[in-house]
């Protein structure tokens, strides 16, 4: 009886699991199959199995038709730069908010919380105008000069996303729960506020740094609307908008699946590697946010 119940539970879980896994597996498997095979396999379990004549043709086509490696490189640069800067900048503000007494602290905190509800889509349009008017500073002929606009660059995709109110809030919540005694002991030991941050708080806050790094990574890797607006040329284009190339003319689903699989690879790799961390951190972030 007990065993039967268990079997039933597993069967049900498998069914639901199939529903949730199918599109992802289908995408990956199809990327290795010629167009006709994709359609032929679609209606059977073969759709999510690596069976039949597997080929790398789709990938070859993707690499030929698009600068996917360039996009990939751009995405890696943008994502890593933003995440690293963000960890630093956001945790520093959270540190002053949660562990130092200063006038105006409360108002800044309230502002940070209020900013959490503004979705990126709500400000992209004015942001676009803003950055189109911001000049960049660069080297030219041995001197500092102001150059054109920010558009079509990597930094236009990095800098606006470094400071993030949600991540500041996550750091704030974590830091707030660390006993103040540590700071005071360190203060008596002669540490400056920055040294307290660097030597005491940061080493004690591994979990929240991991959480924010993961969430920020996801956010940045999957950027879509902003690069479409701010980056017209190929040079600075990241992976997600790049997929548009494969629509239009005549759609080759095999190639699309290959591209999609290729750009999903890093997220999946990170996800599977840090799976436990991922899940617990997102749950924590959600429940508190």
């Amino acid at each position: 009886m007990k065993r039967l119940q268990k079997l039933g539970a597993y069967l049900f879980l498998l069914l639901i699991g199939y529903v949730f896994l199918f599109p992802l597996l289908f995408m990956i498997m199809s990327s290795f199959k010629p167009e006709q095979v994709i359609f032929a396999d679609l209606y059977s379990i073969r759709a999510i199995l690596p069976v039949g004549d597997l080929t790398l043709d789709n990938y070859r086509q993707v690499f030929e038709k698009s600068d996917v490696l360039l996009y990939f490189r751009n995405s890696i640069l943008i994502t890593s730069a933003t995440v690293i800067l963000g960890l630093f900048v956001n945790s520093l503000l959270a540190f002053t908010l949660s562990r130092m007494r200063w006038s105006g602290r409360k108002y800044i905190l309230a502002a940070v919380v209020a900013l959490m509800i503004i979705p990126i889509e709500a400000i992209v349009v004015p942001l676009l105008l803003l950055v189109s008017k911001l000049p960049t500073i660069g080297w030219e002929q041995g001197g500092l000069v102001l150059m054109g606009s920010w558009l079509n660059s990597l930094e236009v995709q990095i800098l606006p996303f470094v400071a993030n109110s949600f991540f500041i809030f996550l750091f704030y919540q974590f830091f707030r729960d660390i006993p103040k005694d540590f700071d005071e002991a360190a203060e008596l030991d002669g540490a400056t506020p920055f040294q307290i941050y660097r030597h005491i708080i940061v080493p004690m806050s591994g979990p929240v740094f991991a959480t924010v790094a993961i969430l920020h990574f996801l956010l940045m890797w999957n950027q879509y609307i902003w690069p479409i607006m701010a980056v017209q040329g190929e040079d600075a284009r990241p992976v997600m908008p790049g997929i548009q190339i494969f629509f239009g003319r005549q759609t080759s689903w095999g190639e699309i699946m290959a591209y999609a699989s290729f750009v999903t690879l890093p997220v999946l790799a990170v996800f599977l590697a840090f799976q436990k961390k991922f899940v617990s951190s997102l749950a924590g972030a959600g429940i508190k946010g």
Binding site: F88, V89, N90, L92, L93, F95, T96, L97, M100, W102, I108, A111, V112, L115, I118, A122, I123, P126, L127, L130, L159, P160, F161, V162, A163, S165, I168, T192, P193, F194, Y197
Partner: peptide
């Protein structure tokens, strides 16, 4: 210290969230 440590994030939030709004 408060100023130096909070300025980068506050600047970012102001430039790219508050100002655009």
């Amino acid at each position: 210290y408060v100023f130096l440590m909070s300025a980068p994030a506050l600047l970012g939030l102001f430039m790219f969230m508050v100002l655009p709004f």
